[in-house]
Amino acid sequence: MSEMQAVTGVVNLSAGDPALAGEIRELGGAELLECIQCAKCAAACPMVLAGFSFFNKKVIHAILLGLREELLDDSSIWACQSCNRCTEVCPREVNPFEVVQAMRRVAIREFALPTLSVEGLKSLYDTGHAVYLAGAGNTRAKVGLPEKPPSTVASKKALQELQTIIRNSALADLGIIPMGETGVSETCEV
């Protein structure tokens, strides 16, 4: 996947993919078509303030035009904070955050996801935590806590439960991470 980049040059609308909007609606962006591009979501979006090239309003517009390649070539969507301020203010109840999430879901199905996300998924599967620090035991002990929190890292049965769920979820069909029946690995770090 390339570095984040804005749309440059001429956009060929004729090459737009008419199926993209349907895919997005299937994957959680059900209210996509309610958008009238008023830009209130963009006015509320931290990604806009930080200067990312694609964000809620623009993602929705690009989806409606079927600009699959342009969207997949840009990694902005992975910077969405899920802050949901857009959802709170959207007067059309589009739930723009959910549309951005759905675009991530499309991207993942085309293996267009950042390395960190792959690592997060792997860590989630291997330890039950998207963020896991192997060396955290010491710090925990320093503040008077047991080395392991009372989570999947402390219970093999619990981790197996989680792994069973994930092995039966859509992630399993995508082949993005290996899914063995492992214990807590010591490798993950975000």
Partner: peptide, 16 residues
């Protein structure tokens, strides 16, 4: 006429 008076028009719904 209003534009000529210098009233500034901006496209974008106010967010906050």
């Amino acid at each position: 006429y209003c534009r000529n008076l210098g009233i500034k028009m901006l496209r974008g719904r106010v967010g906050g």
